[in-house]
Each structure stands twice: as structure tokens, then as C-alpha cells.
Design a protein around this nucleic acid. Structure first.
Lengths: 231, 231
DNA sequence: CCAAAAGTGTTGTGTGTACACCCATGA
DNA sequence: TCATGGGTGTACACACAACACTTTTGG
């Protein structure tokens, strides 16, 4: 099919920046390996063209599902911004609307219809490097900064964890994303004191050493007030 | 000229949300009256189509200049986000990248080439109303929230004021945008204590009543640390 | 019993808030 | 002299960082 227009136009894509904590690679981003030029063989954010009459966030969800098999009603996408430098794609004028989200530890991606490779890559190997296609390294850097500041007020940190978790695991999320250790005692008091943030299951879980930790579930709170201060 | 494409495409516009404090209307937004359908006669954000090979932020600056006469090297635009609901423009699929900025009190807009009317409209008459074209009321609401939170950490508040100003005028900016009074004494101490935020000119300005206030200039600081807390 | 991790207590330091108070001017 | 707004002082409450200390398990 051929489309015609009297005015200049752009191609519009939706790209998804999905963070997760992986046991082997730490804070990582879900990427697909490009199977065709340009940037063939490089890593790229899952994403693709927005369909006619398709909402932007729906396009992002669809592309994530088609290219990585990741989907679900619980999945929340927040818009990161539009990236539209004239030469960011060497073929055409392509403007990308980037979205970001956080995935839990049990998400298992699967290569999509395009049969490209799918993998988690650690963010600290991506931000300064040239391993990524297009301007996706910039998008990852912007998204990482957004994630870091979001942890102060939002409940996104809980999304990294399983349905039930310990306070130490939640603290580990903050320490990994912020890149610095937090005082265990103060953190404990702080997060258990936020109304509606954590629900105690009453059960405890024994680790290798030490006193068993309490098991918590996410509570109904949607924000952390007052915010957790980044050191 | 006719453009052709084998894939679906979108039209891309750049819209600018310019805030200012006007003596008559308070916190206001710079708008243009649409002279042609759709939404003829309604108010809209200044904006228009992004040219081929034109950077997004340059397009926003150009549209603001062409439609309102507002320009200048000092003008900073920050991206608010992309708005692309399928039916937001009844004619075509149009995705708008919205940008926001703050203008000083001496900016005098002038109707542009399209000869449409240009005016400042107060934000509180816009957010809930149907006076605006397209989804621009949503963009104004999102931008207002962004402005409010930006005042906590950024130096955007200074941009509302003249080159020289008093602490009381700066406080008035915060009170107007946040919609609640602030303690004059505490505000004074706080902002004069932020390193590099304000430079004392040494001069004083006499108002109608009371002790004359010190005159300040913006300093080199680019952020307010620790942030001013919204009450 | 010891090591280790969970969780609580305690205390010093700093910051925001409320408000009293002084200062400098115009009327 | 009074009213008014600019600007400083001060006391209180509260929040946080640091760290000691208790609790509860595995080895």
C-alpha cells in the first residue's frame, strides 16, 4: 500500500525501556538484537511503528509483547519523552516516543516473531558505550535518571520484587539503583512507617544466616510521603 | 508538493506552553486564537508542523516566534511530552510534542503571520474548561503540574521576574504558582541562603509603604539544594 | 557459643515552622 | 507617630543519620 501526503510527515515508533534486577547482571535493561540494517547486530530497545489509529501507550505495550513476549495487565508504562533528532535514523525521519517500566524477577522474555535475540544487559555497560543502535543509549541514560528520582516518591521499587519480599530485599533495590549503601536500621524504620506502603504477611523467611526476616506484600499506597531522600 | 510513503505515518507538530505572570490575569498562558477549522475561534497553544530535517526543539522555538513574536537566545524550552491519541485531531493523525517555558514580565507578544489573535489567558480559567482546541487543556494541566514541582528544585521561578527583583517579588511567584501563602521571614532566609541563587545588587527599592527592599539579580546557581518544600 | 542478619533504641544535629520582634520608610 | 512591609532572632517540633544494642536464627 502507498500513502500520500501534501505535507511532510514522520514515522512514529514506540520504544520501551524495561528495567529489572537480574541476579547475574544487576540492574539491567531488556533489549533485542537487531537482525537487519541499520545497526544490524547491535542491541536496541524493543519497539516499532505505531499503527494507524493506535494509541501511543498501546503501541508500546504491543511492541514489548511482540518482541519480547512480556505482557500483563499489571504492566504500567510511563512516558519518558519524544526523541526526534533529524538523523537519529539514517533511513527516514523517525520520531520515537519512549516509555519506561519496571519488571519483576520472574519475568522470562522470549524472542518474538522477528526471531531476534532477546537479552538483559546491565545498564552500566550501556550508558557510555556504543553497543546500542540509534540514540538508544541516550534514552537508557535519561530513563535511568528518571528511575533513580522516581524511587524517592513513587512505589516503583516494589515492582522489582516478587509478590512477597523482605525489607532487606527492598533495601537492596534502592542500594542497587542508587549505587550506594543505606543504613539497614533507618531504612527499616522508614519504609515500615510509611502508611499503606507495606502489608505484613505475618510470616517469616529464614535466610542462610541470621535472624529470619518478616515477609511483606505491597500495600495500597501509591506514593512515599515524605519522600525517601537520596544520599 | 506530494509526499509518498509505503508505511503509515503521522503528522508531527511542536506546541509551546509559555507561562508568565501578568498583572491583570495572574499566572497565564500564551495562546493564539485559531482562525480556521477545526476548533475555529478556540484558543490553542502556539505550535505547528515540524519541518523535514528540523530538530524538535528548534521547531518549537520557530513556531513560538512565528505565531507570537516571542524569541530570544535566553529562552529555554523543556520537553513536556508527546500527545498522540488517535482522534485528538479530527482531520489526520497528528502527534504533538509539547514544550514548556517561562517568560518574563516584559515580553510583549505580537500576532504572527497567520494574523491570528494572541493573548494571555489565566490558567485557572483553562484547565477545567472547554475553551481550548484539541487536547490542549490537558497539556496545560500537565504543564502546570510540572511547573509547580519544578519550582521546588529548579531556578525557573527567577525567569518570571525582571533582571532585578526583590525577595518579596520572588516569594509572590511561589505563592501564585503554588496557590498558597508562604511565611515571608522563612522564605527570605531560605532563598538568600541558597549559595549562588541570588546576587545582591547593593541597591534598594522603595515601595509605596514600608521599609525598602533589597534588589537582587539571578546568580549562577542552576538548582535549589535542598529543595524548597511545597506546603 | 559464635557469626550474621533482623530489627529497635538512643542521641546529636540539622531543618522547617511559627511567630515575636526590630528596621526603615511614606503618609 | 503610625501603618506597612522588609528583614532577623528564637524557640519548638520533628526528621534524619549514626551507631549501639537486642533478637533470632544456622553452624
Amino acid at each position: 500500500m502507498t500513502y500520500t501526503s501534501e505535507y511532510p510527515f514522520v514515522y512514529l515508533t514506540a520504544d520501551v525501556l524495561a528495567f529489572a534486577l537480574r541476579p547475574d547482571t544487576g540492574l539491567s535493561v531488556l533489549l533485542v538484537k537487531r537482525g537487519s540494517p541499520p545497526y544490524k547486530g547491535r542491541w536496541a530497545l524493543p519497539g516499532g511503528f505505531v499503527d494507524e489509529r493506535e494509541d501511543l501507550v498501546r503501541a508500546a505495550r504491543r511492541e514489548l509483547r511482540e518482541e519480547t513476549g512480556v505482557s500483563g495487565r499489571r504492566l504500567r508504562l510511563e512516558q519518558l519523552g519524544a526523541y526526534g533528532a533529524p538523523r537519529r535514523d539514517p533511513r527516514h525521519r523517525v520520531v520515537s516516543v519512549a516509555w519506561w517500566t519496571v519488571l519483576g524477577p520472574d519475568v522470562v522474555p522470549a524472542a518474538g516473531d522477528d526471531a531476534g535475540e532477546v537479552a538483559w544487559l546491565p545498564v552500566d555497560e550501556l550508558v557510555g558505550s556504543r553497543r546500542m543502535a540509534f540514540d538508544h543509549a541516550t534514552i537508557v541514560a535519561d530513563g535511568l535518571e528518571r528511575l533513580r528520582s522516581s524511587l524517592e516518591r513513587s512505589t516503583w521499587a516494589l515492582t522489582f520484587l516478587s509478590e512477597e519480599f523482605t525489607v532487606a530485599e527492598l533495601r537492596s533495590v534502592y542500594e542497587t539503583v542508587w549505587g550506594r549503601p543505606l543504613d539497614p536500621g533507618n531504612f527499616q524504620r522508614k519504609v515500615t512507617g510509611v502508611p499503606g506502603l507495606l502489608e505484613d504477611t505475618g510470616r517469616r523467611v529464614g535466610s542462610a544466616r541470621g535472624r529470619p526476616a518478616g515477609l511483606y506484600r505491597p500495600g495500597p499506597a501509591t506514593e512515599i510521603r515524605p519522600p525517601l531522600a537520596r544520599p
